[in-house]
């Protein structure tokens, strides 16, 4: 008699643990702002309950999408127009559909549209730097923007952040929440950046760098980049059929 087994997960199944070395340590001495902001006590390990396994849902009716950051008020922002697209998957390779992706970034000159940013670089009245997109049924997202500039940040002498776009994702549960940054290929500042290098694992770090994508590059219009996300997968159990 043959026995078959099946991996089972549903919306009540907890999420898998994060993998050591693929996530930054909040105690990161090279990044000065961490010194007074990282907890000294070890985190309390807790089981995942409905609070951690369930999560908020967002719909474009309450949170309107903004898919083109390259224009504002009918005017074109300055800088190099780019298209960024990619896929949100879980650790089992399944698409994460209908999830909200928030985006924010500096303008082409490396200046944020934010009163605390005092970098001596021009603001662009036609670039706000905020976007919001939702993944489709296949987990795909896409937006148009301006390539952000590098900017100085005073962490150490001559410190410059590599070009980057900030991202916020939610996924299916509270445990899958993710905030991260997307970097650009070939940036010489990456090797020098204490924030990028807080990820110890080389392969995990490399996955924070977008890839140039000729397939979404639009002739006579904009270069394309691809950036995929992986959110925590469910901790499947194996049952006998």
């Amino acid at each position: 008699m043959s026995e078959t087994y099946r991996r089972v997960a549903d919306e009540h199944t907890p999420f898998r643990d994060l993998v050591p070395n693929t996530q930054p340590d909040n105690n990161a001495p090279e990044y000065g702002s961490t010194h007074k902001r990282h907890p000294k006590q070890p985190g309390l390990r807790t089981p995942q309950t409905v609070t951690e396994i369930a999560g908020p849902r967002f719909s474009p009716s309450h949170y309107p999408a903004v898919i083109d950051l390259s224009r504002s008020g009918g005017h074109e922002a300055m800088g190099e127009r780019i298209v960024v697209h990619g896929r949100v998957l879980d650790e089992d390779g399944r698409p994460v559909p209908d999830t909200m992706v928030e985006i924010w970034q500096a303008n082409a000159a490396g200046r944020y549209n934010h009163p605390n940013d005092v970098h001596d670089a021009p603001l662009d009245p036609h670039f706000k730097g905020e976007g919001r997109v939702f993944t489709d049924a296949g987990g795909w997202y896409q937006f148009t923007t301006i390539k952000p500039g590098a900017y100085p940040w005073r962490n150490h002498f001559n410190a410059w952040r590599p070009n980057h776009i900030h991202y916020s994702l939610f996924g299916p549960g509270f445990a899958t929440r993710l905030i991260t940054q997307m970097y650009f290929p070939g940036d010489p500042l990456l090797a020098l950046d204490p924030i990028f290098n807080t990820v110890a694992d080389e392969h995990a770090r490399a996955r924070l760098i977008a890839k140039f994508d000729i397939e979404v590059t639009r002739p006579e219009w904009a270069l394309g980049y691809r950036f995929d996300f992986v959110l925590r997968g469910r901790d499947t159990t194996i049952v006998q059929e």
Binding site: L18, V19, T22, Q23, P24, Y31, L89, E91, D92, G93, E102, I103, W104, Q105, A106, Y112, N113, H114, N116, D117, K128, G129, E130, R132, H166, S168, L178, I179, T180, Q181, I195, F196, T198, V199, D201, A204, R205, R207, L208, F229, V230, L231, R232, G233
Partner: peptide
């Protein structure tokens, strides 16, 4: 098997999405 994407700090300018 893919592994979950790494976090990076929200930084000082996240209020653009506030």
């Amino acid at each position: 098997m893919p592994i979950a994407t790494s976090f990076q700090t929200i930084g000082p300018y996240w209020a653009l999405i506030e």
